[in-house]
């Protein structure tokens, strides 16, 4: 422990903390983007035309099984060079797009599992009540499909929070970037990087506990409903 210096720690702390706003802001922006874009994937996969379905499935698989870091580099460095559609994006926007698209494929799967979990009778009921497609989705299916997925969506928020420091590689000035530049300047990586690790731990651990609690609560709620249903079936 000979090289640990509290003075450096105290000096680096406010500098690293400056990046916190950007890290949090980027996390929320990416998350919102992924939440919205996730719907896009879910509905694309529901198109009942085999070739489109097949293509969408493989595109999702492609995005999910390749590293987000490379995707980030692609959007930041390569996108401006692409003919016709290429535009130069600033680091922050590229990070939102890169990480947002990457995680939207996961979020899309979460939505899908939620929609698949809706009882078949509900679809039939919507049809027999002569609901329009829009009414069916907004009034019957989605209100039942989304709440059970909330714990899973929360988990993805924490996962994304931990992936956001990747954006420091393209120059978004989050906490990791601040720590690295401090380290490069004074040649002491130890303290600033430790601060970053501690900050992550402080924020992600309580939220993980919170999500856990939420999950248990949700499970209880939905189990109860199911138990009620089955007991009804038994007596009838």
């Amino acid at each position: 422990m000979s090289n640990w210096s509290w003075e450096v720690f105290a000096e680096a702390f406010p500098i690293v903390l400056e990046g916190l706003g950007i890290t949090l802001g980027l996390t929320i922006a990416c998350y919102l983007f992924a939440l919205i874009f996730g719907f896009f994937w879910t509905f694309l996969r529901r198109i009942p035309f085999k070739p489109i379905n097949w293509i969408v499935t493989w595109v999702m698989e492609f995005i999910r099984s390749t590293p987000p870091l490379v995707q980030l580099f692609f959007i930041y460095y390569a996108w401006p060079m692409v003919p016709v559609v290429g535009v130069t994006l600033d680091p922050f926007t590229s990070a939102i797009l890169g990480l947002g698209i990457h995680f939207s494929t996961y979020i899309g799967e979460v939505y899908r599992s939620g929609i698949d979990g809706v009882d078949k009778g509900q679809w039939e009921a919507a049809k027999s009540l002569n609901f329009s497609t829009k009414q069916k989705w907004t009034k019957i299916i989605l209100p039942q499909a989304i709440p059970p997925t909330i714990p899973m969506l929360g988990n993805y928020l924490i996962i994304m929070f931990k992936e956001v420091p990747l954006a420091s590689t393209i120059g978004v000035a989050g906490i990791l970037h601040m720590a690295n530049s401090y380290g490069a300047q004074y040649w002491t990586y130890l303290e600033p990087l430790t601060i970053v690790a501690i900050l992550f731990l402080i924020m992600s651990y309580p939220s993980a506990i919170l999500i856990n609690k939420l999950e248990k609560k949700m499970n209880r709620r939905f189990d109860k409903k199911e138990a009620l249903n089955s007991s009804k079936g038994a007596t009838a």
Partner: peptide, 11 residues
């Protein structure tokens, strides 16, 4: 699990 991989790697 609470900190991100990239931070651990640098650390």
């Amino acid at each position: 699990r609470g900190t991100s991989l990239i931070v651990q790697l640098f650390w």
